[in-house]
Lab assay of single mutants.
Amino acid sequence: DEETLERIAKELKEKGWTLIVNGKLITDAREALKWLLEEEERR
């Protein structure tokens, strides 16, 4: 759910983690959240 996604995005940002999505590096939590939401919609 959205709360979980926001928590994940926040944790990613705090830890300075990066996500690699389709070979693209995502360092911004907002971008990561946007991607996660798009993935949820596809299901």
Score class of each variant (00 low, 15 high):
D1A: 08
D1W: 15
D1Y: 15
D1G: 07
D1I: 15
E2K: 14
E2W: 14
E2T: 09
E2M: 13
E2Q: 11
E2L: 14
T4A: 11
T4K: 06
T4L: 15
T4F: 14
T4D: 07
T4P: 03
T4E: 06
T4V: 11
L5K: 02
L5S: 02
L5T: 01
L5C: 15
L5G: 01
L5H: 01
E6F: 10
E6L: 12
E6I: 12
R7Y: 05
R7I: 08
R7K: 08
R7H: 05
R7S: 03
R7N: 08
R7L: 11
I8F: 09
A9C: 15
A9N: 07
A9K: 09
K10S: 11
K10G: 04
E11F: 15
E11N: 05
E11R: 10
L12Q: 00
L12F: 09
L12N: 00
L12E: 00
L12W: 12
L12C: 15
K13H: 11
K13A: 14
K13P: 00
K13I: 13
K13S: 12
K13M: 15
K13Y: 10
E14A: 05
E14N: 08
E14H: 03
E14D: 09
K15V: 03
K15E: 06
K15I: 04
K15G: 15
K15P: 02
K15M: 11
K15A: 05
K15F: 12
K15S: 04
G16L: 10
G16A: 08
W17C: 15
W17Q: 02
W17G: 11
W17E: 01
W17R: 01
T18E: 08
T18S: 08
T18R: 05
T18D: 05
T18F: 07
T18P: 06
L19S: 01
L19P: 01
L19A: 04
L19F: 06
L19N: 00
I20H: 04
I20S: 03
I20K: 00
V21Y: 06
V21R: 02
V21T: 03
V21E: 03
V21L: 08
N22S: 08
N22D: 11
N22E: 05
N22I: 11
N22V: 12
N22L: 12
N22M: 10
N22W: 09
G23C: 15
G23F: 14
G23D: 07
G23P: 01
K24A: 14
K24Y: 14
L25N: 04
L25S: 03
L25M: 05
L25E: 11
L25G: 03
L25P: 08
L25C: 05
L25F: 09
L25T: 07
I26S: 02
I26F: 11
I26L: 06
I26E: 03
I26Q: 02
T27L: 07
T27M: 05
T27V: 07
T27R: 08
T27I: 07
T27G: 02
T27D: 07
D28T: 06
D28Y: 06
D28L: 10
D28F: 14
D28S: 07
A29P: 13
A29G: 01
A29V: 14
A29M: 14
A29N: 02
A29S: 04
A29E: 06
R30D: 06
R30Y: 14
R30N: 09
R30V: 13
E31C: 06
E31G: 03
A32M: 12
A32S: 01
A32C: 13
A32Y: 11
L33R: 01
L33N: 00
L33A: 14
L33I: 10
L33M: 07
K34E: 10
K34C: 15
W35Q: 03
W35E: 00
L36G: 00
L36S: 00
L36M: 07
L36V: 03
L36Y: 08
L36D: 00
L37N: 04
L37H: 05
L37S: 04
L37K: 09
L37G: 02
L37T: 03
L37V: 06
E38Y: 10
E38D: 07
E38M: 13
E38T: 04
E39R: 05
E39N: 10
E39S: 06
E40R: 06
E40N: 13
E40M: 14
E40W: 14
E41Y: 12
E41W: 12
E41S: 12
E41G: 12
E41K: 13
E41N: 10
R42Q: 05
R42W: 10
R42G: 06
R43F: 11
R43N: 10
R43P: 09
R43S: 10
R43K: 07
R43Q: 12
